[in-house]
Design a protein around this nucleic acid. Structure first.
Lengths: 202, 202
DNA sequence: GCGTTACGGTAACATTCGTTACGGACATGA
DNA sequence: TCATGTCCGTAACGAATGTTACCGTAACGC
């Protein structure tokens, strides 16, 4: 393998370690030493890959976004109808299993870290606006005859609902099991007039 | 004023300083010195009021919950109909002005801090379950003939939506202005069949 | 008026943080 | 075989953190 690919793979492994620390120890314990320990190396390797701690966090944040975007695009491409695509994409945004729950915790950690970091908040806004546009495009495809106002309001309601329930379920998994989240999502899609075959009515 | 009331007032002022630091500097800068500076005192006073930093955070977290609960109860008591009560209570959960935006940022900060703190996560769960029960009670009052399943799914959808849009708007106020949040909320209430006079149809 | 006591500010403590400098291990090429 | 350069672990540095100990001061009781 080429040395540059090696370096990129190391950067990816370190970003994954950032996610692990963020999910299991929280933002306050997200230190360079904790990341190195999670990655199975020392702080020396970390500081040779990234100029400083912020660069490490920014890389991990961007990689998180790229990963979720690829997953969403695969879901969208594999869907059999516009409404199924909408439901599938929204469904992966909730916290219905340990994996998505971890992603939600990491997402919350990055958001809290972005409060005082202009670059992190900028990345969040770019990524979130793209995510919102995707939702609007999916809603418009699922309801082609709606006016743009309604598309916007419904798409906003759906992404806000999934982000919100993901945060709630991440913080209290026992109180928000997967099937309750799914019932919530399907009830909302049916109420908006966007129900599809994948949604169980009863 | 009695000395015990003085002490309580000081604790409240310090908790308010915790909120300020959390909203303006983020969780990573939430140090005892930063809180003391925001409160206009020194670290000595802080450490005389609270045994340690965690106790300060726990007190601020509980005071935040108590404050929002009182505000919500006042809104609910002043409402002219069950549906207006539901809408008013949900509306204050969004981030539609600088004050509620600040509260949303603080809420996110506490949630991120609770990841690795058993007591903070316990407080969050107690408070959030009470909040969810209130929403279910309001929905049941607004739609008395609904089965409990529907009440639960719709109430969950509504609180998830408002929490989610509060987080989105707190992180990107320019992209989520107040009127878009309100249109989102009213569209959801109408879609669920819970629209009221306070909701403008156009 | 004076001793006492509670209150709060100052300064120091040990620890932990991000970051830097240094040194050894290993591969490569002549 | 040896010089060279890369890679990464080790150890140290200064700064910042939570916490503690100490000291001045102002209010209160007698």
């Amino acid at each position: 393998m080429s040395p540059s690919a090696d370096r990129a793979a190391q950067g990816e492994a370190l970003s994954r370690a950032v996610w692990d620390v963020l999910a299991q120890q929280g933002l306050e314990k997200l230190t360079v030493r904790a990341v190195a320990a999670a990655a199975g190396c020392t702080t020396g390797l970390v500081m040779h890959r990234f100029p400083n701690r912020r660069a490490l966090l920014l890389h991990a944040r961007q990689l998180l976004h790229d990963t979720t975007r690829e997953r969403v695009e695969a879901l969208e491409a594999a869907a059999t109808s516009p409404r199924a695509a909408l439901r599938g994409v929204l469904h992966q945004g909730m916290a219905t299993d340990p994996e998505t729950t971890n992603w939600s915790i990491v997402w919350l950690g990055f958001l809290a870290a972005a409060v005082a970091d202009a670059e992190l908040i900028g990345m969040h806004r770019r990524n979130n606006r793209a995510w919102r546009q995707r939702a609007e495009r999916l809603v418009a495809a699922a309801a082609p005859d709606w006016p743009v106002d309604q598309v916007g309001a419904v798409a906003l309601g759906l992404i806000a609902m999934t982000e919100g329930v993901a945060a709630l379920a991440a913080a209290d998994p026992a109180a928000y099991p997967a099937d309750e989240q799914e019932r919530m999502l399907d009830a909302a899609l049916v109420a908006y007039g966007l129900g599809c075959e994948g949604s169980r009515p009863s």
